[in-house]
Design a binder for these strands. Structure first.
Length: 702
RNA sequence: GGCGGAGUAGCUCAGGUGGUUAGAGCAGCGGCUUCAUAAGCCGCGUGUCGGAGGUUCAAGUCCUCUCUCCGCUACCA
């Protein structure tokens, strides 16, 4: 095949968190692809960087009482260390907070201006007067105007699903300061992307740059109607780059983040002397982005639009993958399935995860499930039982003699495995790693069968058959070497070990085509250790976040740099542990402002008895309650508590209800005439209030 | 609630444009082997292809309805 030049990127990890096994799906996937391309003789530049700007970084730095720069420098170190631990090898790891990136942002911005795509518009947004900053929807919480659920974000209610703007929110509070924000208007800059609509339709629908389901998605969701202007500025204070011709405004993080791909390339070119323009402006170099499906829209609409306008090369292909689930569910800190890269590495070999992901990755956008039992079985039986075992069961018989000098007759096994080269290469190139792994393992099965048939351990007992033993092992080790080449993109260390064992390094994909003869054989040492269930369990345990009640107070830094190695497996929390209440609830929902007694008295809270409770069929969350206030005063109340309570257990209970809320129509199921008092964030964690015994229905709470 | 995805053997998954008795790996069971990291080899599958209906000579594969599960709902399209 002719040599290709490939500029490859993985999405830039945000400098606000550590790398976890979910992120690693993408970096491992990209790294495998890159290593394959290199092995196949193509020229590759693999670029990545930290994504460092935005409100979240600014707020966290503020909270930790440090500069943004020191925060992102620390995270960068951690990210680089984690990637290296998993053998993810970038040619350059940059930062969006770099001079190269600033220059490129200026350049692309100037092009957008010149093309007349930048427009200005006023945006009315909530403003935190204490912190002096505008508040994004998710930094505002309040009471849902539709269902009355408290503690809802500024854009939609996760109790009833209503969407609205922060302006509709009842009693909005800034989650930064707890104060009541006020509306202010600011001038924002927008990119009128609609001007590029025809170009984007053509580019996305050409069938060559995107997976078909992605092209469909874009066609159905965005391209069917005019594209909205893209708000790319944020008023100060903001951690990012100030817009040169609009003082006091900063580029929104999603503007400068993808430019980080180019900036990393530029920095790398400076360092190595490579010609920047040949990668991003002219010539045959291909640009390949690997991203998760969550950021599809930025990479397939805005990004091509920006590149096109500024005269950069367009992506050759955007490879989009699904998310990681663990045991069929999304990763959860409480279950210990939210495993950081660094935690994994303390317990397990990175090769295992690389191989496991490889067996699961295919061309599609499907989510990928990490099943821990399967992980263990696959690694042990495929890698140890099949592949490494080939070397392990034959190497020592030829340690003294080395390989035969002429490749022996092997019944066509070597040629057959060599013939799979193009097919396996095509699978790798297409990103269908699972298909490649299946084919490789089938070859490993054949090789093991061969050894079994030939039984060199039996032959060895007859001194006159020494030559035959050498021949059989020469075949076995050559078959092993082919597997090591085929697996080299996934398991680079194993490829090195195979090179050492047979005293000839693996350098090229074509090494599968020529058998090795006459080389020495080094003493065999274990190449991979079997996975022990205990290691997996230990990793999960170490990843579990303690129950809130037993949690030690979060350190003042607020940095969740938890307990590396500090886990005491046997530690029990059931008794004698003094209860220490963590601050996270207050953090999640800051204290409301002071009110007068009159305000409080407006709220009529009553003890009521639940007479009937039944689930609302159409709803995931609602239960219809009929409650008695004593006498024959009844109320019907819809409460969003189905996820936490079985209706039958509520009947007969005394609970507390706000009875003078305006009745509210609930999405076609009826009218709710009150609100049940309950605490907790929602889902399974909802806790209804009850009076102590002796209270009677109808009694008011003071 | 909205949007998206998925439902094929115990588990994880293959099954372009519909076409012989629906496949693989792993697990499991039985036997063999003992060189090898409790590794290897041989044999063993009556699966309502989530359910119902439809189109067709023919459907896991197309259409309609339906059930279940999962994900997303981020300064956001």
């Amino acid at each position: 095949m002719s040599t290709r030049r490939l500029l490859v990127t993985s999405a830039l990890p945000y400098a606000n968190g550590h790398i976890h096994i979910g992120h690693l799906v993408e970096y491992i996937q990209t790294d495998i692809w890159v290593r394959f391309q290199r092995l196949a003789g193509n020229e590759v530049a693999y670029m990545c960087a930290d994504d460092t700007h935005g409100t979240a970084i600014m707020i966290r730095a503020q909270k930790e009482g440090r500069s943004e720069e020191s925060l992102i420098a620390e995270m960068r170190e951690a990210h680089i260390r984690d990637f290296a631990g998993f053998d993810v090898e970038f040619d350059y790891y940059g930062s969006t907070n770099s001079e190269e990136n600033r220059e490129l942002c200026h350049e692309i911005w100037a092009a957008l201006r010149k093309a007349g795509l930048v427009v200005e518009e006023d945006v009315r947004q909530l403003f935190d007067t204490e912190k002096g900053t505008f508040l994004a929807d998710r930094f505002v919480k309040g009471t849902c105007p539709k269902c009355g659920a408290v503690d809802q974000y500024g854009d939609n209610c996760d109790k009833c699903g209503a969407t609205y703007t922060p302006a509709d929110l009842i009693n909005p509070k800034s989650t930064l300061s707890g104060t009541t924000p006020e509306f202010r208007t600011a001038r924002h800059l927008f990119v009128r992307i609609e001007d590029l609509h025809p170009f984007l339709t053509e580019w996305t629908q050409s069938g060559t740059h995107l997976q078909p389901e992605v092209a469909n998605y874009l066609k159905g969701h965005f391209l069917g109607e005019p594209l909205r202007d893209w708000d790319i500025s944020r008023p100060a204070p903001y951690f990012g780059f100030e817009i040169p011709d609009s003082p006091g405004n900063y580029w929104y993080v999603w503007f400068d983040a993808p430019i980080g791909y180019i900036a990393a390339t530029k920095a790398w070119c400076k360092k190595t002397g490579s010609d920047f323009d040949s990668w991003w402006k002219t010539g045959p170099a291909e640009v390949h982005h690997f991203i998760g499906k969550d950021i599809t829209y930025f990479h397939t609409l805005f990004w091509p639009a920006m590149l096109k306008t500024a005269g950069f090369k367009l992506p050759t292909f955007v490879h989009i993958h699904g998310f990681l689930t663990v045991a069929g569910e999304k990763m959860a800190k409480t279950k210990g399935t939210f495993v950081r890269g660094s935690t994994y590495l303390e317990h397990l070999d990175p090769a295992f995860l690389r191989y496991y992901y490889a067996t699961k990755l295919s061309k599609g956008l499907d989510d990928l499930d990490l099943n821990l039992k399967e992980f263990e079985e696959k690694v042990n039986s495929d890698l140890v039982g099949k592949v490494v075992n080939l070397a392990s069961r034959s190497a020592k018989f030829v340690q003294e003699t080395g390989l035969a000098t002429i490749y022996p007759e092997d019944g066509g096994l070597f040629a057959e495995a060599a013939a799979a080269r193009d097919e396996i290469a095509a699978d790798y190139d297409a990103g269908d790693f699972s298909a490649a792994m299946r084919k490789i393992m089938a070859l490993a099965d054949k090789a093991n069968r061969y050894i079994d048939e030939k039984s060199p351990w039996t032959l060895r007992k007859d001194p006159s058959k020494a030559d035959e033993v050498r021949q059989v092992c020469t075949v076995a080790l050559n078959l092993f070497r082919q597997l090591a080449v085929y697996l080299a993109p996934v398991l680079p260390r194993l490829a090195n070990q195979a090179g050492e064992l047979l005293q000839t390094p693996i350098r090229s994909w074509n090494d599968v085509a020529t058998p090795l003869v006459g080389t020495g054989v080094s003493p065999f040492t274990h190449m991979l250790k079997r996975v022990d269930e205990k290691q997996v369990q230990a990793m999960i345990e170490a990843s579990k976040e303690p129950e809130p009640v037993a949690a030690p107070a979060v350190p003042a830094t607020g940095a969740p740099t938890a307990a590396a190695g500090g886990v005491t497996p046997g530690a029990s929390t059931d008794e004698a542990t003094p209860v220490v209440d963590g601050p996270e609830c207050l953090v999640a929902e800051p204290l409301a402002g002071v009110i007068a007694i009159d305000d409080f008295l407006k709220v009529d809270l009553r003890v009521v008895r639940v007479l009937a409770a039944e689930p609302v069929e159409k709803s995931k969350k609602l239960i219809r309650l009929t409650v008695s206030l004593g006498g024959d005063v009844r109320r019907t109340i819809f409460a969003g508590i189905k996820t936490a309570y079985d209706p039958a257990t509520l009947v007969g209970r005394l609970i507390v209800v706000c009875v003078n809320l305006a009745p509210r129509e609930m999405k076609g199921v009826g009218v709710s005439e009150g609100m049940v008092l309950a605490a907790g964030p929602g889902d399974k964690e909802i806790f209804i209030l009850s009076p102590d015994s002796g209270a009677k229905p109808g009694q008011r709470l003071h």
